[in-house]
Amino acid sequence: MKRRILLRGALAAGLAGPGLAALTHTRHELDAALSADHSTTDVGFWESTAERHSFGYSGQTPVDMLSSLLDDFADLRRSLSRAQTVQNRTALCHATGQMAGMAAIVLHDLGQHREAHRWFGTAARAAEQSGDRLLHAWVAAREAMVPLNYGAPQAAALLAEKARHLAGETPSAASALASAVASRAYAVTGDRDRAMKSVAETEALAGRLSPQQRADTWFGYPMQKHFVHTSQALTVLGETDRAYQAQARALELSRAPSLMTRALIAIDQASCRAQDGEQAEAARLTAEAYGGLPAAYRTGLTETRARALHRSLPPGTPGADRLADALGSPV
């Protein structure tokens, strides 16, 4: 509970003070443990712990999810530091890569992109030590979404291509994710040909995945996630008819507690409306989607997307003042 209180306060202040110190200290301990020539025998416990976290927020707020992960890292670090066999250490590095990657995702969603990059660095190191190229590719693809969503699409494209290389030619959840992120990055940079090619390649990969690879976890590439990425790429490309179809399918497949995902899809819909000349409807949809979120979700990625749409509206757009109020910014 104390950790959650510190973390909430730190996030409210931009991740400064005791909360940031605790987060940084935990990451440094993990890095030190990964450098040690040791391990433990409780591999099964950590594999199941990583799997439990992999189902996403499941109704938790991002801060609560991050706090839960940090609580587990304290014990995981001690496990990594005990004497171990090579096999056990490899398995523990795999679980560490998964869990550090999940912590980085949550930090990304909270808008803490610098700290997210640092945690992705720890996740990549652990994944590399585990010998699992697909996990390493997944980490790179997920990290690419940080610069993609926070203003550096060229860097995102480079990371996505690195992930594609690591994933190889065989269809996998990691290769599909890397291709999907690449399509979005190229769309934002204005490279329409490469973006459309990546959209088509992602479609082909998604159709060749096994049921296990399509699992609805952070490590799978479920069709709901596929349509969310497709919606984003097509929205940026101005392919509004196809984007609306992707958004409808994403909403159909979204789990009930997916508050953040549903809000982001609604903002995509609003962006399409604005491109189709319906600016007032775009303002209304965004104000409703963003303003209807609990306070814990009106930060980071959702706020960034809502502000971007607000900035795109012509002066005097009906409903823009309501959106500005929801954002807490002047009209």
Rank of each mutant, 00 (worst) to 15 (best):
Q112A: 08
A215C: 03
L234T: 11
A256V: 15
E169Q: 14
A100F: 03
A33K: 04
Q212I: 11
A167T: 12
H108R: 14
A13R: 15
A156N: 01
Q275V: 09
A282H: 05
P147T: 05
A123Y: 03
L301R: 15
A22I: 02
E143Y: 02
E115P: 03
T302R: 10
P211C: 09
A32K: 14
M260K: 05
D325M: 10
A256C: 04
G319R: 07
V181I: 11
L285M: 10
P18T: 10
I105C: 09
A324R: 04
I5H: 08
V146G: 03
V228L: 03
T90C: 01
A124P: 01
A137K: 06
G168V: 11
Y57P: 03
S231Y: 02
Y244F: 10
T61C: 01
I267H: 04
Q224Y: 07
A13L: 13
F227V: 00
E239W: 05
P294D: 10
A187Q: 04
G44A: 10
T96Q: 05
L11I: 15
V106Y: 01
H136P: 02
L15S: 08
L110K: 08
D109Y: 03
A274M: 15
T304E: 12
P314A: 14
L285S: 08
A155M: 09
S172G: 13
A21T: 10
A155F: 06
L20A: 15
E303V: 05
R133M: 06
L148A: 08
R307P: 01
R214C: 12
A104S: 09
Y150Q: 05
K162E: 14
A22C: 07
R307C: 04
L23P: 09
G9P: 08
T26A: 14
G220H: 05
S58D: 08
A306G: 11
A50T: 06
T26V: 07
T189F: 02
M65A: 15
L66D: 06
S48F: 03
A256R: 15
W46T: 07
R262D: 07
G168K: 11
S312V: 00
R3F: 09
A12W: 10
D132Q: 10
A50S: 13
S79K: 00
R125F: 04
E161G: 00
A13M: 09
T299E: 10
L80K: 02
L205P: 09
G17N: 11
H113K: 11
E115V: 09
R273K: 13
R273C: 13
G14L: 01
W138I: 00
G17C: 12
D72C: 03
A250Y: 01
H25P: 01
A187H: 04
E288R: 11
E288K: 08
G19Q: 09
V146D: 00
H108Q: 12
A156D: 02
A74N: 06
D191S: 13
Y186G: 02
W138F: 12
R118S: 13
I105N: 08
L15M: 15
R52F: 06
P314E: 09
T240G: 02
D31A: 15
A204L: 13
Q279Y: 11
G168P: 10
D75M: 10
L259W: 08
T235V: 06
A306Q: 08
G291E: 11
W119F: 15
A204N: 14
Y221W: 12
D241G: 05
T240Q: 04
Q129Y: 08
E252W: 07
S54L: 11
V146I: 07
I265P: 02
V139Q: 01
A266R: 12
L166P: 04
T217I: 11
A250G: 06
M1E: 07
T49G: 00
